[in-house]
Computed example of a mutant assay.
Amino acid sequence: MNDHPVIARIRLNPHSRDVQRDLRDATQMHRTVMRTVPDHLGESPRHRAGLLYRLEETDTASTLIVQGNDLDPAGLPAGYGHAEVKSLTPMFSALRKGFAVRYRIVVNPAKRERLPQTENKHGKIIALSGPDADQWWIRRATDAGLQLHIITPTTMAPVRPRGKQATAMRHSLLRYDGTATITDPTALAEAVRSGIGRGKPYGAGLLSLAPASAP
């Protein structure tokens, strides 16, 4: 297994029925992405595989960004899309305190409702939006070793798991783009490997970095 994750950029084929199904159904998308990692990983296979992904859509194309410890796009359905895989080792090697970066991440900002101490149960999870979501991201980024300078939020289409065993929870997604300075390279490396926040099986949590001076 690789010391550092690899990343695959998969330009999706809009004519593929599998792609069309997955773009409508977050549960199916998760199942398809899991086909790129080894079998027999035991319990919590997504976590063991280090699998994170993000869907990026424009007016002309849809691209799936997939990160994992050991990816093989050959496991995707035939005709699903064109994949390019590269190592993230150079990126991890470049992480230095004080280094300026550009970032992108899709997150599911949420908090658990507080209940009176007399109630012996957990409060429901509440999605955050607006300034509350921005503050959530600032706190998480700080914990992840980033000092944010620019924060540009973009509201994404929400996802809801489907299927008989799926929860009824609706995942509200926000994309954040901006610039930051690295304050803790070790914490940042772990955040890149593990992802940030909830909703990771549904396209949230993958933190992408690039030098701020890059075009």
Rank of each mutant, 00 (worst) to 15 (best):
A83W: 05
G197D: 04
D22I: 14
R46N: 13
L207I: 00
S62V: 06
V101Q: 04
G75N: 12
P5Y: 06
G145K: 08
L51C: 00
H171D: 08
P5C: 06
A141K: 11
E56I: 04
P45I: 10
H40N: 14
H122Q: 12
Y80R: 04
S87R: 02
G195L: 03
R193S: 08
S172V: 07
E119I: 15
L51E: 00
H82K: 12
P90K: 04
T152M: 12
K164E: 12
T186G: 10
Q20N: 12
L76K: 13
P14D: 15
A166R: 07
T89A: 14
S172L: 06
T58K: 02
D39I: 11
R114K: 10
E56M: 07
S62E: 01
A94Y: 08
A212Q: 15
D3Q: 14
L55F: 00
G203L: 05
R11G: 05
L115T: 11
D72L: 11
M91H: 08
E113M: 11
V159P: 02
A94P: 07
G98W: 04
R31W: 03
L207C: 00
S194H: 13
T155G: 01
T118I: 13
A141D: 12
P131E: 04
L173Y: 05
K200F: 07
I125W: 10
I151D: 03
A78H: 11
P211R: 03
V6N: 10
R112N: 06
F99P: 01
V37Q: 07
T118F: 13
L51P: 00
A78Q: 11
R198L: 08
A8W: 00
M29W: 02
T27G: 12
R175V: 02
S62T: 09
L148F: 12
H47F: 10
N13Y: 01
I182W: 07
A127L: 04
W136I: 04
T181F: 15
N108T: 00
N120H: 12
R54A: 15
R104H: 09
L188D: 04
A133Q: 02
N2C: 09
T167D: 11
A157C: 07
Y53S: 00
V106C: 08
H171G: 07
R21W: 12
P38I: 01
I138A: 08
A127H: 06
R54S: 15
Y80F: 15
D22G: 14
R160W: 05
T36D: 01
S62L: 01
A214G: 02
R162Q: 14
I182V: 15
G197Y: 03
R160I: 09
V107C: 03
V19Q: 01
I105C: 01
I125Q: 14
G199D: 04
R9M: 13
N108Y: 00
P201A: 05
R17W: 09
T183C: 11
V106G: 02
R9H: 13
T27Q: 07
T179L: 06
D184M: 10
G98C: 05
M34A: 11
Y103M: 10
P90E: 05
R46F: 14
D59M: 11
Q117K: 13
A100R: 13
R170H: 06
N108R: 00
G197T: 04
L52M: 03
T179F: 05
P185R: 01
L188W: 06
H122K: 15
P116R: 15
T167A: 10
S194C: 09
I182K: 05
